[in-house]
Amino acid sequence: MWQRSRDSRTAYMFLLPALLVMAIITFYPLVFQVWMSFTDYGLTNLRYNAPPPNFVGLQNYQRILDNNIVLPNFDFVRILVFNLFWALSNVIIHLILGVAVALILNIKGLKFRRIYRAIYILPVVIPPIIVATVWRNLFDPQYGAINQILSGITGILFKAPPVTLDWLNEPNPILALGPFILPVAYFALLGANVWLGWPLNSVVATGALQSIPNDLYEAAEMDGAGWWQKFRTVTLPFLRPAMLPYAIYGFIITFNLFYLSYFMSGGGPFGQTELLVTTAYRLVSEQHLYAVAAAFAIFEFFILLGLTLITNRLGKATASYDA
């Protein structure tokens, strides 16, 4: 017992700097934010010696749910639906491509494997803000590389006029089902994020593939299994426990991915590629609606909490299947 309390004292000595700093710049702001969300904190309250803001109860939350905010094209449900679809579609594509490439690179006897692996990892080491700005450039309607390549292909094959699709601003959506709207810009963002996202999935998959004992495949072959059966009965059970936690992690990261939406499409057209994080940012940086932004951040917190709990449960449910 004496040992334990002495340990506790030592522990808090080690923790003191971190606790102090986090209390001031992390936990206090988060608590302060809750208070802010119940007030009408705005530009006028920022000034030194300004009067305190008024208490407005749940009005900010109500305004968000009613889309009663002066942010252009604000629609809470539409943003949330798009944000969920954005994260889910990305993660699924990353996962499939990542596993596929890992399987190819894992084929015995493939030459130059090391070179390919070194090349494929390159997108990962580029800062996201650079990736976003460069891809915006690539999708330029007139001079971007994407349209120039497409023009080249269609010009040679079909003698068609040059492609001048305005990827990031095309106003007519590809799909519109109530609050679920997919503009052309979504596919541009998807392209950039797939480029950015699959390599890491491939790394995780490669790690898992290399942990599979070779005799399992030999045993399966003796039983006369084809490649699909080998994949289903040997490869997949080994891939799942490694890929699932990473897919969950990727889902949350993609859900909160600020840079692509903000820099490539600017949330456009008509705010249709806006995410929760970019909306929260605009509420502060463009509209100076600090109290509304606080309420919005709290909505966001609970949405993320819900997603984390759901994905963890999903992860556990499928994990027991393998164990």
């Binding site: 934010q33 909160n256 929260a280 109290a291 932004a293 993320l304």
Partner: peptide, 8 residues
């Protein structure tokens, strides 16, 4: 996300 406590 990094901007979780932006306003405060």
């Amino acid at each position: 996300p990094a901007v979780a406590a932006l306003a405060p």
